[in-house]
C-alpha cells in the first residue's frame, strides 16, 4: 500500500470515554484545528461499538451551522477515526461557572441556536435522544453546535419498537420514564425545555437521584399526569402514579423563574407539556413570540465565553508586552 500524504496531525490527548479517545489536531491543508475521535475496537462483541456507527451514520447526513461537523472518517491500523470540528467549550461548563453572568438575551440566543440545530435533525427524521448542556458545544465564534450523536436514531417503520432507555436521566421526558416504546421527536423537545429552565436557574431543573426519584422530582415540579390531561398515559408499560401532585399554578412558576418574562414562561410551559402530543414541535417553538420580544437574541460572537480563556489571552498579551 502506498502511503498517502498526511492530511491531519495529532497533537495531544484531550479526553477519553468508554469507547473512544479524543485527540486535538490540525488539518494540515487548511491549518484548521480539529478533534480526532479514535474509536477503540476489539473490545465489543460486534467489533465496533454501536454509538460509533450511529455517530458516523447521522453526522454524515446532517450539515447545519448548529450541528457539529464531521470533517472526515478514516481507518488506520485496524481502528476507526472520526475527524470532527474542534469545539473548545460546552454549555455545562458555562452554566457551572458562577463568575459568568447570563443576560436574558444570551439565554435566548443559545436556545435559538439549539432549536435550529434540532429542527434540522427532526426534519430529516433523526432523533438525537441525548440532549443536555454537556452535549451543546460552543465554537470560538460563539456558535452553539449539537454534538454526540451516539444515541441518535432515525425513525423507522411505523410499528418499530424504540428503546425507552435513552437520554440522560435529568433530561428524560415523562413518556420515556414510563417506558414508552413508540415515542416521537417530542422527547428532544422536552430535553430542550429542561435545558432552557436550567439556563435560567443556573442549576439542574429536575435532578432525580435514580429513575424512580426522577419521576417524583418531575411530577413534583410539573404535576402528576392524569388521564384527563394526558389521554392513555395509563397504557404505558411502566406507568404508575406514585404520588399525585397538583400541576403548578402560573404564579408558582413565576416565583420559580423570577427573572422570566411572561412569554418565556409560555414557551417553557409548552416545551414541558407532560403529554407528548401537546408538547410544541420545533417549528412552533422557533416561531414563538418569545423570540420576537425585546431583547433580541445576542449575536453569537458577543455571547459570554469561558473565563479561563480570557485569562490565558491576557497572559498572552502580557507576554507580548514583556517581549516588546
Amino acid at each position: 500500500m502506498t502511503t498517502a500524504p498526511l492530511k491531519y496531525s495529532k497533537s495531544k490527548k484531550v479526553g477519553e470515554g468508554t469507547y473512544a479517545v479524543v485527540y486535538l489536531g490540525t488539518q494540515i491543508s487548511s491549518n484548521r484545528k480539529i478533534a480526532i475521535k479514535e474509536i477503540k475496537t476489539g473490545m465489543f462483541k460486534d467489533g465496533l461499538d454501536m454509538s460509533a456507527i450511529r455517530e458516523v451514520k447521522y453526522l454524515q447526513e446532517l450539515k447545519h451551522p448548529n450541528v457539529i461537523e464531521l470533517v472526515d472518517v478514516f481507518s488506520a491500523t485496524n481502528n476507526l477515526n472520526l475527524v470532527l470540528e474542534f469545539l473548545p467549550c460546552d454549555l455545562e461548563v458555562l452554566i457551572k461557572d458562577t463568575s459568568v453572568v447570563f443576560k436574558s438575551a444570551d439565554i435566548k440566543s443559545w436556545l435559538l441556536m439549539t432549536l435550529r440545530g434540532i429542527h434540522h435533525c427532526h426534519r430529516n427524521f433523526i432523533l438525537h435522544r441525548d440532549l443536555k448542556p454537556n452535549n451543546l458545544l460552543l465554537a470560538p465564534d460563539g456558535q452553539l453546535k449539537i454534538a454526540d450523536f451516539g444515541l441518535a436514531r432515525s425513525l423507522g417503520n411505523a410499528n418499530e419498537d424504540l428503546t425507552s432507555n435513552v437520554v440522560t436521566r435529568w433530561y428524560r421526558a415523562p413518556e420515556l420514564l414510563f417506558g414508552a416504546k413508540h415515542y416521537t421527536p417530542a422527547v428532544d423537545m422536552w430535553s430542550v425545555g429542561i435545558i432552557f429552565a436550567e439556563l435560567m436557574l443556573r442549576t439542574p431543573y429536575l435532578p432525580g437521584k435514580d429513575d424512580v426519584d426522577q419521576l417524583d422530582v418531575t411530577f413534583r415540579a410539573l404535576g402528576t399526569p392524569t388521564e384527563q390531561i394526558w389521554p392513555n398515559v395509563s397504557m404505558l408499560p411502566q406507568y404508575n402514579a406514585l404520588r399525585v401532585y397538583p400541576p403548578p399554578s402560573r404564579q408558582e412558576l413565576r416565583n420559580r423563574f423570577s427573572a422570566a418574562t411572561e412569554k418565556s414562561l409560555d414557551l417553557l410551559i409548552s416545551m414541558t407539556q407532560l403529554d407528548p402530543s401537546r408538547r410544541c414541535d420545533l417549528t412552533q417553538a422557533l416561531l414563538h413570540e418569545f423570540f420576537l420580544e425585546s431583547p433580541r437574541p445576542t449575536e453569537p460572537e458577543d455571547l459570554p465565553k469561558k473565563k479561563e480563556k480570557r485569562v490565558k489571552e491576557e497572559d498572552d498579551e502580557m507576554n507580548k508586552r514583556f517581549k516588546v
Binding site: F178, A180, Y183, T184, W230, P231, M235, L236, D275
Partner: peptide, 22 residues
C-alpha cells in the same frame, strides 16, 4: 388505535407525513 402508541404521543398523521416527505 393502539392505546399504548397513543399514550406515547404516536399519531397517525405523522406516519403519512413522513412517508410523503421522504
Amino acid at each position: 388505535k393502539n392505546k399504548e402508541y397513543l399514550g406515547a404521543g404516536w399519531r397517525l398523521h405523522t406516519v403519512f407525513e413522513r412517508a410523503l416527505d421522504e
